[in-house]
Design a protein around this nucleic acid. Sequence first.
DNA 1: CAGAGACTATGATGTTCGTCATAGTGACTA
DNA 2: TAGTCACTATGACGAACATCATAGTCTCTG
Lengths: 185, 185
Amino acid sequence: MAADVRAKMIRGAAQALSERGLDGTSFSEVLERTGAPRGSVYHHFPGGKDELVTEAVRYVGALVVTALDAHPDADPVAVTQAFTGLWRQVLVRSDLHAGCAVAAVTVAAGGDQQALLEVTAAVFREWQDGLTASYGRAGLDDARAAALAVTVLAAMEGALVLSRATRDLAAFDAVADQLADLAAR
Amino acid sequence: MAADVRAKMIRGAAQALSERGLDGTSFSEVLERTGAPRGSVYHHFPGGKDELVTEAVRYVGALVVTALDAHPDADPVAVTQAFTGLWRQVLVRSDLHAGCAVAAVTVAAGGDQQALLEVTAAVFREWQDGLTASYGRAGLDDARAAALAVTVLAAMEGALVLSRATRDLAAFDAVADQLADLAAR
DNA sequence: CAGAGACTATGATGTTCGTCATAGTGACTA
DNA sequence: TAGTCACTATGACGAACATCATAGTCTCTG
C-alpha cells in the first residue's frame, strides 16, 4: 500500500499531464484524481513536483516501449499501425480530451526546467530508437528505418494535437493512413 | 501608440507562449518582455488573459497564412519547403527554445478553457486549408492535396516538439526531408 | 485653453500553487 | 510488550498569479 500510493499518484499525474498540461497538473489535481493523502506527497516524492512529473513521463515512456516490444511484427505497415493504434486509443478513450503527456511537458518546460526537458528528450529518443529497431527487424535498411521512425513519431505527436484541438478524429486518421502508405513502399 | 502597446503585447504573448507555454505566459512575463505598463493591461484586454492569448494565437495564425500566400509556387515540393522552412526559422532563431504557440495552448487548455481550444482549432484548420489550397494550385488532385496537407502540418508540429526536447535540429531536418520526398511523388 | 476620453501608473485583493512542519496512526521487530 | 519506522492527516507558509480599483497623465477636439 506504500508503493501503491506512489504508483497511483504517478499514473494520476500521467493522466493529468495528458489532459491538462504541466501546470494543470497540480498536486491538488493529482490528489483529487487518486484519493491519495496530501500528507504523504513529500514522503513519496521528496523532490517535489519535478520528481512526480519526471516519474510520470518515464512511466508513459515505458508503457509505449512495452507496447512496441509486444509486436515483434515482420511487417513495416503493422509496426506503424501498432504505434498509431496505441495513440488512437488514448484519444478515443478520453473522448478527444487527452494527448501525449511527454509533449505536454516539453512545450511547457521553458528555460528554468532544463531537467524536465532532458527527461522528455530521453523518452522521445527511446521511442524513436524502438521504432527504428522495429522497422529494422521488419527488413528496412538502417537509413530508411531511421527516417521512417522519426517521421512517424513526429507526425503522430502532431496528429494528436490537431485532433485534440478540432475535437475530430479525422485529422488523426488521415495522418495514420498516410503513414501506413509511407511505410508500405 | 495606443494600438502600439496592444500589438506589442500580442507579439510578446505569442513569443512567450511559444517558449514557456500557456501558464508560463503570465501578464508579468508579457509586461517584462514588452515594457508595457501594467495598468493598461485591462484597458487593452478587458477580457483578461483569455483575450490576450486568443489574440496571440490568431496573430500567429495570420503570420503563417501570410507567409504561405507569399509563395504561389507551382511546385508541391516548394510549398512543403516553404512551410517547413518557416518553422525551421522559429527553431533556429530561438536557439531551439521556441516551438508553436498554437500547439502550446492546445495541450495546456484542458476542460474549462473550451473557448481557447476553439481558437486553436480554427487556426489549425486555416493552416490545413491553406496548405491544401497551395497543393491544389500546384497540380495535385483534391484528395491527395488534403491528405498531404494534414500530414505535413502534423509532422511539422511534432518535429518542433522533438527538436525542442532533444535540443537538436536533426529530428526536424529528417522529418522535413521525408516530407519533401512525400510531396515529390 | 478647457474639457473629455484614451491611456498609464501603482498597488491591493483574493486565489491557488508548491512546499513543508507537526502530529498522529499502524504494523512489524526485538 | 516496548520501540521503531513507514506512512497518513491537517493545515500553515510565502510566492506568484489574474484581476481590478483608484488616481494620475497625456492628447486631441471644440
